[in-house]
Design a protein around this nucleic acid. Sequence first.
DNA 1: ATGTTATTGCGTATGAGATACGCCTAAAAG
DNA 2: CTTTTAGGCGTATCTCATACGCAATAACAT
Lengths: 251, 251
Amino acid sequence: MTDEIELPAEVTLLWGLRETVRRGRKPSLTVADITRAAIEVADAEGLAAVSMSRVAAQLGNATMALYRYVKSKDELLLLMSDAVPDGPPDLPDDVDWRTGLTLWARGLLGVTRQHPWTAQIPISGPPLGPNSLRWFDCALRALDGTDLSEEEKVGVVMGLLTLVHGELRLSIDLSRSYAKNPQAFGRQYGMALARVVDAQRFPALSKVIAAGVFETEVPYDEEVEGEFEFSLGLYLDGVAAFIERRTTGQG
Amino acid sequence: MTDEIELPAEVTLLWGLRETVRRGRKPSLTVADITRAAIEVADAEGLAAVSMSRVAAQLGNATMALYRYVKSKDELLLLMSDAVPDGPPDLPDDVDWRTGLTLWARGLLGVTRQHPWTAQIPISGPPLGPNSLRWFDCALRALDGTDLSEEEKVGVVMGLLTLVHGELRLSIDLSRSYAKNPQAFGRQYGMALARVVDAQRFPALSKVIAAGVFETEVPYDEEVEGEFEFSLGLYLDGVAAFIERRTTGQG
DNA sequence: ATGTTATTGCGTATGAGATACGCCTAAAAG
DNA sequence: CTTTTAGGCGTATCTCATACGCAATAACAT
């Protein structure tokens, strides 16, 4: 089979199809080793600390050794982002779609909470790695019992993925800056706003500020969590309405 | 007034409150000039091309001159991300919330389409700049006629912002990689998936592939646009249901 | 006027990081 | 045991962000 020839570079990388090992010196590393080391560094010191030399050091190798396994740092990042979401939750076969998607979304949220840097990696293409696709499949399976067309299922899942991703990115970026400077949130934030926002130019915002919405002393994490559940709920309500329409409309 | 002393650095920067100009050499630049130049560079050559020296060159100054106006590149990025979304759309006073939010979301989408790099700038804190707050205010105003509490309005808007942001980031990252390598999408993508995905391990995904969902020849932009409208619609349906509940439940 | 002082403009230097190139070594094939 | 092929990695280059310090300049004080 000369099939592999046509497969894009990303795919062969992500699925470990770059085995041409015949003769020559034996490799002392594997792509998986490198990926694991990079993830260790990112977990411990943040994505910014992931440099080729730092990762190499983690493995006890020289910087340039890595380039025998990975064409560029971008490839490494791609590997990292597929390697991290280890596996989607196991949904019981008979869950209703809403419970399924909720578990799925929470699972994704949880995974990313443990490796916050994933949200910072720029997405370089449609999902192609084994883990990403497993997650994708899992969400689609949750919609199996519904009357949606395959295309509509994809749409729903993409929207949800987008929402979760956006939420993650936002909340992670925010908690990073929160960690640096907690006073910038909560009361302090409200006060700074109040100083700068006038009722003429920002009528609606002023009302919100006046209502004290920004002066909560709720721990930040809980607030984010609440936000997430809230918008997830809204989105799923929308999905419910859509499914309803589909079902009664053409069932 | 010694008020300003307490204002965080970001705020004084974004609102142009760093005027201490008394004696000494006259500044030949302004923060606004620098921001504008940086945006020109980003528009023309992408965010990656925005380096301090490139921006300085754009202005005909030396690299280090910029540091008199901006503490770091991060500050410059912050300025850029507030400066770009020029102003929110003018919503008629009597629009219903759904139309208002739809216009708002489309407006935000449009602005970002013209400056795709905005989605790549890491968010470093809650919205504080004049333009960001104007947009925030605009969305809140759209919800003015509803029975939601101020806090709920904020929740709805944050969720929507998250969705739009996530959508943008996704679609922009994707179209970047699409531009580089169009074959990786559409038919080619479907084929690569088909090669690698087996029905045992990816039951739901296989069905989707079999249904030919990934083999459309729809121009990519339209597809993204459609995706966006679809998930926006879902989310707003959710909001509608929520408002409904609030209104009948406690009205 | 003239020196004083606060500020800006910017050259130079440092250190980090990605990555091309090519030499050397080791393993497999003949 | 020689040839072939692939991995390990030192060295070198280029790009950046940014610290530091000196020189130019404009308001102010005398």
